Amino acid sequence: MEAKAITRHVRISPRKCRVVVDLIRGKSVVAANEILTFTNRGASEVVQKTLNSAVANAENLHHVRPESLVVKACYVDEGPTMKRIRPRAKGSASPIRKRTSHITIIVAPREEA
């Protein structure tokens, strides 16, 4: 009886996002929310929105109290990369890769996780 939330095409590098997601893996939802509130990273806001969405899914679909939930699994996959070019000296160009992420968070009741 787990609930899942996926946020796709987030305009932040997966490498930067994984740092934040690793902080909340295995924690209770209340503790994870506190950690994300006080984490000074750009990805923490998006990860917190995804976590709140997963909690809302569990609450609405399975009628589970949010206090009894645990972050069972969370991971960040790489999304499509937008390719741009930057003009350089002597008429040449350098590539710029604007990376995107897919964030997945799965929550489950404490005894099940």
Score class of each variant (00 low, 15 high):
residue 70 V to N: 02
residue 17 C to P: 00
residue 18 R to C: 06
residue 19 V to Y: 09
residue 82 M to G: 07
residue 52 N to K: 08
residue 22 D to H: 13
residue 50 T to Q: 04
residue 37 T to F: 11
residue 55 V to D: 00
residue 51 L to Y: 10
residue 84 R to M: 05
residue 65 R to C: 01
residue 32 A to D: 09
residue 78 E to H: 08
residue 61 L to F: 00
residue 18 R to Q: 13
residue 42 G to N: 15
residue 80 P to C: 08
residue 55 V to C: 03
residue 59 E to G: 07
residue 38 F to L: 13
residue 35 I to G: 03
residue 43 A to S: 15
residue 47 V to R: 02
residue 44 S to I: 14
residue 27 K to G: 05
residue 52 N to D: 09
residue 75 Y to Q: 02
residue 53 S to A: 15
residue 38 F to A: 12
residue 27 K to I: 02
residue 52 N to C: 07
residue 85 I to D: 03
residue 81 T to N: 05
residue 66 P to I: 02
residue 30 V to R: 07
residue 64 V to M: 04
residue 85 I to A: 06
residue 27 K to L: 15
residue 19 V to P: 00
residue 53 S to M: 15
residue 20 V to T: 14
residue 72 K to F: 05
residue 83 K to L: 09
residue 68 S to M: 06
residue 53 S to K: 12
residue 49 K to Q: 12
residue 22 D to C: 11
residue 45 E to R: 11
residue 30 V to L: 03
residue 66 P to E: 06
residue 39 T to M: 12
residue 42 G to L: 14
residue 71 V to C: 10
residue 85 I to Y: 15
residue 80 P to Q: 11
residue 43 A to D: 07
residue 52 N to Y: 02
residue 50 T to Y: 08
residue 71 V to A: 10
residue 21 V to E: 07
residue 80 P to L: 13
residue 74 C to N: 05
residue 56 A to V: 07
residue 61 L to K: 01
residue 44 S to W: 13
